[in-house]
Design a binder for these strands. Structure first.
Lengths: 338, 338
DNA sequence: CTGAAAGCGCTAACAT
DNA sequence: ATGTTAGCGCTTTCAG
């Protein structure tokens, strides 16, 4: 059970050649005799030789690894992001080192450090909800490691970015409810200190204004998780009755789905009596009853785009200008809840 | 923007010391003068020195990284597994290199290779559905890299394992349906070359036998994804009618939920006409309509247990006997679909 | 066409 | 108490 990796030196010794010759033979260096190449290659194949990636990285001063810092893998949006990143990265010969911050600032700091320690060639990051200080990221930046922020960006650090147009997404969702005949629309909102929280609320307000509907502060309730919905159930039901609510725009899908379930326990029919729309479009939307209308946030493309921007930096080192921000527009996914 | 990591040598040069002294000072070697230590440490702190993990690994012949090969991160079970692994690993100073095979054999081979190339200290793996040949894994094993299989194990390779008692879980699920009055139970099964596929089928058969119900091969249909359900919809509906199906045990939750949706489009009432139970207990179970009864499979514990077994091997190298298999027993989660 | 030697960043046995 | 040296596995100049 002891480690027994074959090294270049091993091959050289057995074949009575020098390590340099073996190295060159393996990578088809023109100087090497065809005979020798064949000999070395077949032998290497036979003994299942694999170059040591660490030694290579150390020598080349390039790890061909990019680091990814992500809040929570369980969320469908983020796991789609991972797929987008990996598909591009693998194709270009890069490995991805995934770190999950678990929405925890301390963990994020440690993760960033680990990525720097491993000398990743670049970092992709979406910051945790609890991160308010950015020195750890700036330190990576100062170390000369190219970075790209996606989704949860840090405005203070100038880099390439990929974001979703939350404002427009919320507007699309709210417009849709209005077009479906809703007059009194409840918004279940995320905390306003989060960019997605305030941007989505603003989009909601804009849609109302565009249709000459007067906004009502009472109809904006801070409530952005499934659990939150059930704990506010009493309050929400009262509100819905008093204000004659006929539409709900929730800041994410799981909140929207929980809201539907809460309404249904009171015998309210969806979409007949109240129409509901979410934000995100994970697989839950299809599973919900009725299937949830929502705006689709493009996780896969977000990841792909972020990786693309990073690759660009990696291929053009030294050029630290012209940072670009890619904005992805979410699209309406109508199902049966509206 | 150019890479500018400080090295031991840099510090040595500037402080006019030898690299070894700096190295020792940094790790509190008793031989080193307190003055020198202080000098070195404060300077290292100041310039934000961080040892190069690659150089360290190369030198120590130990990467403190463990590799994880997992079919699909999106599945709740697997992302829980990751959390279980990480929590333990980080605590012990290990990093986790996550590879997603995407249920693709080719990718799994490449991933395994990448882990070997990076000289991970150990590997945790749950094989993809499409994997039939195990040479890639055996090669890691032969290289002396300790492995632990979890969930989707490979029986041909002797290692430590963590599995769910699929047999018992299936039995629990099927018994539950029978107790709820079902007589003709359809089983939506996973491919039989997967251990979880055959074990769950066997548990189903055992439950039937225990209750004197004659098994009917026609009632076991290979169908283990949401998409599969909809593509087989015609066939399934016919079967349900002909065989007077009154209960369905699906090999996983999303298949169970898709089945409920398919039935509902035909006006079939759940649980009144047909009762449905799944396997896994992800968050989808709560969102489904009606909320899905299922057996709870413990992802977090699976990951933790697998990592625990691996750590044991890493701490006792050379002992390649007494491989143990940890079996976790799933528990019934009754909701409204039965 | 092949080999010797240096070095990527670090540690540790062996000096002094 | 500190320095020298060798070496982890590899590539790449520089010499033959």
């Amino acid at each position: 059970m002891k480690s027994n990796h074959v090294t270049l030196k091993d091959i050289a010794r057995i074949l009575e050649l020098s390590p340099s010759t073996v190295s060159r033979a393996l990578k088809d260096h023109p100087d090497i005799n065809e005979e020798t190449k064949k000999l070395v290659k077949t032998f290497a194949e036979k003994v299942n030789y694999r170059p040591n990636a660490l030694a290579l990285s150390l020598r080349k001063q390039k790890t061909n690894t990019i680091g990814l810092i992500i809040p929570e893998i369980v969320h469908h949006f983020f796991s789609s992001v991972i797929s987008g990143i990996e598909d591009l990265a693998y194709g270009e010969g890069y490995n991805v080192m995934i770190c999950q911050s678990n929405e925890n600032y301390q963990r994020e700091v440690i993760d960033t450090q680990a990525l720097i320690d491993h000398r990743v060639d670049g970092i992709l990051v979406s910051v945790s909800k609890t991160t308010r200080d950015y020195n750890h990221l700036r330190s990576a930046y100062d170390n000369g490691i190219p970075m790209v922020f996606f989704d949860r960006i840090v405005e203070e650090i100038k880099t390439d970015r990929v974001i979703t147009d939350d404002f427009q997404g919320a507007q699309i969702a709210t417009n849709h409810l209005i077009e479906r005949g809703c007059k009194n629309i409840l918004h279940l909102a995320a905390p306003q200190h989060l960019v997605i929280g305030s941007r989505r609320k603003e989009g909601y307000l804009k849609a109302l204004a565009d249709h000459g509907i007067k906004a009502d502060e009472d109809l904006i309730v801070k409530c952005d998780t499934r659990e939150y919905v059930f704990s506010l159930q009493q309050h929400l039901m009262k509100l819905i009755e008093q204000k004659h609510i006929d539409g709900i725009f929730a800041v994410n899908d799981s909140t929207a789905i929980a809201a539907m379930q809460a309404l249904q326990t009171k015998g309210i029919k969806i979409p007949d009596q109240i129409k509901v729309i979410g934000f995100g479009d994970g697989p839950n939307a299809d599973i919900a009853y009725p299937p949830l209308s929502t705006v689709e946030q493009k996780g896969y493309e977000t990841g792909r785009e972020a990786m693309r921007l990073l690759l660009q930096r990696l291929e053009n080192p030294g050029i630290e200008i012209n940072f670009s921000t890619k904005v992805l527009t979410p699209t309406l996914k109508q199902r049966q809840s509206t």
